[in-house]
């Protein structure tokens, strides 16, 4: 099943993790750096990326964190998940960050560093070389 939760159109570079993200407490609001040392993206900033992760986890208050990182110009350009969760959905809605849900199969076809263009109105994601 594929869904568009928050619409928009962006071009950027994929940052992918197979681990879910808890936005409350594990993402630095000023820099967008992942501060959880057990996370695959530890010390990496999600700023300016097209962030691919399975889903959000943890408290719904994490939505405010997504709003904060956007206010601090440290947010991803877009988020792509396998599963819709209300924390990430509302966080992206508050912050006006495009968010789409893709299938397991599509999810596995992306790698960190790939350039893509995402356009929810045309309902497509394009890989660019």
């Amino acid at each position: 099943m594929k869904k568009i939760l928050v619409g928009g159109s962006v071009k950027g570079s994929i940052l992918k993790t197979e681990m879910p993200i808890n936005f409350l407490g594990t993402v630095e609001k000023k820099t967008g750096v992942i501060s959880d040392k057990n996370h695959e993206l530890f010390k990496i900033s999600i700023r300016g990326s097209i962030l691919l992760f399975p889903s959000g986890i943890g408290s719904s208050v994490g939505a405010y964190t997504i709003y904060s990182i956007k206010s601090n110009n440290s947010a991803p350009l877009a988020m792509i998940c396998k599963k819709a969760d209300l924390t990430v959905a509302t966080g992206c809605a508050l912050a006006n960050i495009p968010l789409v849900i893709i299938s397991e199969e599509e999810f596995s076809s992306y790698k960190t560093g790939e350039e893509v263009s995402l356009d929810t109105r045309a309902k497509k994601i394009i890989k660019i070389i």
């Binding site: 568009i4 309902k123 394009i126 890989k127």
Partner: peptide, 16 residues
């Protein structure tokens, strides 16, 4: 120069 190699349409979007 940009070459499009893969277009992934979100065809089955269950826009509800």
């Amino acid at each position: 120069m940009i070459t499009y190699v893969q277009v992934l349409y979100l065809y089955q979007v269950t826009c509800s």
